[in-house]
């Protein structure tokens, strides 16, 4: 067998690397970006297994006991319970009120439309300190003490705008011809809404509710102003930050992460399956 030596143009390693790097810069960057995003999450997750007594500042040893008994630090579970209760009530009310506004804005022409749009935009453009402080000042003026319900009201207030924006976007992406087609096919206004409009907007409403809950659950500043002696999970974390946060808080934080991821991914999978079917 006679072989002809074909000179393979081998570039020096340095040059090959620069070329590879040039082609993949954006991908490498994305990997670095995602690492940056996830470092604190991984840290929180890792330290949920720390066998620490009270403060969770340094690594002591590996244990499952925090996960087996997340209520080992009783304040954690109390605060978590409050956060969930507040979140569920605020989400329900804000989603209903916000969706109604979104339908009015997205499906009707009426006088005062732009004023309404401004009123929806303003709470989102107002810093949380201002929202929290102004609401508390008013409650105090009227002799209402901060606590559970003032906090719920505050959360509904700042969630409405986000619900409106999310649902409105979904309504705007809806082809008006679908509703016209339904009416053309003997569905009256109510049936058209129930059978066509609502099912098609539903994913937007679900997304808005999820957003509202996570905003409410994670809120610290506005809650801190209006909750008085009621403890919420973020408030608990903030207050105990000084003397050290019990590892159970990391368990709760990590669980929320996995729960939310689970909900979003399941929703995505269902959506994908529906589209395939």
């Amino acid at each position: 067998m006679s072989t002809v030596e074909v000179p393979v143009p081998t570039l020096p390693f340095g040059k090959r690397f620069t070329r590879w790097f040039g082609r993949n810069t954006i991908r490498i960057y994305a990997v670095v970006g995602f690492t940056y995003l996830f470092i604190p999450v991984l840290y929180t997750f890792a330290f949920s297994f720390n066998d620490s007594a009270k403060s969770n500042l340094t690594w002591v040893g590996f244990t499952f006991k925090n996960w087996q008994n997340p209520c080992g630090a009783p304040e954690v579970c109390d605060a978590l319970g409050n956060s969930i209760r507040i979140g569920l009530i605020a989400t329900t009310v804000a989603t209903i009120l916000g969706t109604m506004i979104a339908f009015a804005l997205g499906r009707h022409r009426f006088r005062g439309r732009s004023a309404t749009n401004t009123l929806i935009f303003l709470p989102m453009a107002t810093p949380e300190v201002v929202l929290g402080a102004s609401l508390l000042a008013m409650f105090l003026n009227f002799g209402i003490n901060p606590g559970f319900w003032p906090t719920v009201i505050a959360h509904i207030m700042f969630c409405i705008s986000f619900v409106v924006v999310t649902v409105k976007a979904r309504i705007a992406s809806l082809d008006p011809r679908l509703e016209q087609a339904a009416m053309d096919l003997y569905a009256n206004e109510r049936e058209t809404f129930r059978r066509i409009t609502l099912p098609l907007v539903a994913p937007g409403i679900a997304g808005a509710a999820l957003l509202a809950f996570s905003l409410s659950f994670d809120d610290f500043i506005i809650t801190n102003f209006n909750s008085g002696t009621i403890n919420t999970f973020p408030k608990f974390v903030y207050v105990s930050a000084g003397r050290g946060i019990p590892a159970q808080a990391n368990v709760v934080g990590s669980s929320m992460f996995f729960l939310a991821l689970f909900i979003v991914l399941t929703g995505e999978l269902i959506g994908r399956k529906r589209r395939k079917r």
């Binding site: 994305a30 995602f34 995003l37 996830f38 470092i39 604190p40 999450v41 840290y43 929180t44 330290f47 500042l57 996570s214 659950f217 994670d218 610290f220 999970f233 973020p234 974390v237 903030y238 930050a241 946060i245 808080a249 990391n250 709760v252 934080g253 990590s254 929320m256 992460f257 729960l259 939310a260 991821l261 979003v264 991914l265 995505e268």
Partner: peptide, 26 residues
Amino acid sequence: KNLLVVLVVAPFFTSFLLRTIAWKQI
């Protein structure tokens, strides 16, 4: 694509105070 979009938002389901404190300790 969709998975990556979820991953961008995912860290923010962990309480932002916990993440901030995690940075402090890191």
